[in-house]
Amino acid sequence: MSDVFTLSDTGDFFVSTSVQNTFNENGYVIVRGLITKDEITKVKDCIEQSEDIKANAFGRADANGRTSRLCVWNRAGNDVSGILARIQKVAGTMQQLLGGDEIYHYHSKLMMKEARTGGAFVWHQDYGYWYNNGCMLPEMGSIFIPIDKCVKENGCLQVLKGSHKMGRIGHALTGDQAGADLERVGMAKTLFELVHVELDPGDVLFFHCNLLHTSSQNNSDLRRYVIITSVNKRKNNPLQEHHHPQYHPLKMLPNSALLECDLFTSTEDKGFMDPTEDASHKIKNLKS
């Protein structure tokens, strides 16, 4: 079963039965060229010129002391990076893949692995964190949108295909990051295919919150910037307040809204996250 899909002859993308079955079976799908060249250029200009991102970025060290920078915001906002998370072909596709129930913007982040210095991210499941935030159901997902080319050399995402079927497993602290139980990950590697998700700017990866994934250090001369937008279902509204938001309407937009937007700084509060308030990476021992 192929995990890669392309646009229709008219340049549109639809969640067909084949797409849905692939997502359900593999825990992810890849859509080539979902974001056009002009659109991704606008997003790139936005993140590189945004004073908000510069002011709110912080580092996260791996177990070997190498650091990647990230910037996290809880509300989409109305700037270019926020519109990207709200357009139909991004948010609407994820909503369909998760079954069609209403979703909301849980958070977005810009992940920055600089050339020759970017750190690794340990094996983990996103729901390994989010369950601890009071999200009781694994009915959540993430949308991985590369701004730069993502290849093995610069630390592209790696996934264990189908590993979401294992359900949530235990997580514990490794460096500044909370990672999945390595013994269980080792066993999972004997059952599930390891896939290096190599993507071009504008390709999009949609993946389930229980999919095991990791990424290695960037030892190349290629920068690796990606935006990851995570969504939750309205019916899965967290049962406790934490550093990510409770349900609020997504206000989905037509695809045309991205190129029509000229704001590189949102006039709406994006709720940039203070890293000292992030409890996710401070998990000491989260058992399944």
Rank of each mutant, 00 (worst) to 15 (best):
residue 1 M to D: 09
residue 4 V to T: 14
residue 5 F to Q: 02
residue 11 G to H: 03
residue 12 D to F: 02
residue 14 F to V: 13
residue 21 N to H: 13
residue 22 T to A: 15
residue 24 N to S: 12
residue 25 E to I: 08
residue 30 I to T: 10
residue 30 I to Y: 04
residue 32 R to S: 09
residue 34 L to T: 02
residue 39 E to T: 08
residue 40 I to C: 03
residue 40 I to G: 04
residue 47 I to P: 00
residue 47 I to L: 02
residue 48 E to G: 02
residue 48 E to Q: 12
residue 52 D to G: 02
residue 53 I to G: 00
residue 56 N to Y: 06
residue 57 A to Q: 15
residue 60 R to M: 15
residue 63 A to D: 14
residue 72 V to F: 00
residue 74 N to D: 02
residue 75 R to A: 04
residue 78 N to K: 01
residue 84 L to K: 01
residue 86 R to N: 02
residue 91 A to S: 15
residue 95 Q to P: 03
residue 100 G to V: 05
residue 102 E to I: 10
residue 102 E to V: 10
residue 107 H to T: 05
residue 109 K to G: 00
residue 109 K to T: 00
residue 112 M to R: 01
residue 114 E to G: 06
residue 115 A to F: 00
residue 115 A to W: 03
residue 117 T to I: 03
residue 120 A to M: 07
residue 132 N to R: 08
residue 132 N to E: 12
residue 133 N to M: 13
residue 137 L to C: 10
residue 145 I to E: 00
residue 156 C to Q: 06
residue 158 Q to M: 14
residue 159 V to P: 12
residue 165 K to I: 06
residue 178 A to H: 07
residue 179 G to A: 11
residue 182 L to V: 08
residue 183 E to C: 10
residue 183 E to W: 12
residue 184 R to D: 11
residue 185 V to T: 01
residue 188 A to P: 07
residue 190 T to F: 05
residue 197 V to T: 11
residue 197 V to D: 12
residue 198 E to P: 03
residue 201 P to T: 01
residue 201 P to A: 00
residue 202 G to W: 07
residue 204 V to M: 03
residue 208 H to M: 12
residue 209 C to H: 11
residue 209 C to Y: 02
residue 214 T to Q: 14
residue 220 S to I: 04
residue 226 V to D: 08
residue 229 T to H: 15
residue 237 N to P: 11
residue 240 Q to C: 10
residue 241 E to F: 14
residue 243 H to D: 14
residue 244 H to E: 14
residue 246 Q to T: 12
residue 247 Y to S: 10
residue 252 M to R: 12
residue 253 L to D: 07
residue 254 P to T: 07
residue 254 P to A: 01
residue 257 A to K: 09
residue 259 L to R: 05
residue 262 D to M: 09
residue 273 M to V: 07
residue 278 D to Q: 09
residue 280 S to Y: 12
residue 281 H to P: 11
residue 284 K to C: 14
